[in-house]
């Protein structure tokens, strides 16, 4: 029997209080057999990077609807890297303009998922990341 389980941290940085999307994703990942650490609302980048370290996750998913992604996402990546979590993939979901997607990806975000994304695509993305890193 396989003892591996993909661990994913789902966090909502910043001040917007809409966490339905994050919860839908958390549940979809759970149903795909992953262990999802859900941290809740209004997390600072510091909290997120520290939680990612303590929980030793494979993936961090950020849900941002406030428009503050260009401030929050690079900061999370930077702190994760400083914590030695360079190998941990960072995904972003929310309302992100196309131009920003390019910039975010260049900064080390592995995937950006806008409105209308099927949860299956996110599961597939994470699975692909895992098999890329695996063994």
């Amino acid at each position: 029997m396989s003892k591996q389980a993909v661990r994913v941290l789902i966090a909502k940085p910043g001040l917007d209080g809409h966490d339905r999307g994050a919860k839908v994703i958390a549940r979809a990942l759970r149903d795909a057999g992953m262990e999802v650490i859900y941290t809740g609302l209004r997390q600072t980048p510091e909290m997120i990077a520290e939680a990612a370290l303590q929980e030793d996750v494979d993936v961090v998913g950020l849900s941002i609807l406030s428009g503050a992604h260009m401030a929050l996402v690079p900061r999370v990546r930077e702190l994760m890297d400083a914590n030695g979590l360079r190998d941990v993939a960072l995904l972003v979901g929310g309302i992100i303009p196309d131009d920003d997607i390019v910039t975010l990806k260049a900064m080390g975000v592995s995937g950006v998922f806008g409105p209308g994304t099927s949860t299956e695509d996110i599961v597939k993305h994470i699975r692909a990341l895992q098999s890329g890193q695996g063994a």
Binding site: A5, R30, G33, I37, Y38, E50, A51, Q54, E55
Partner: peptide, 25 residues
């Protein structure tokens, strides 16, 4: 499904940033 949602950290926000605390789900 073998999956899990580990939500205990939601209630432990106050402990963030303290090097004398380590939380694991």
């Amino acid at each position: 499904t073998g999956g899990a949602i580990l939500g205990d950290r939601i209630r432990m926000r106050d402990l963030a940033g303290d090097a004398g605390v380590f939380i694991r789900s």
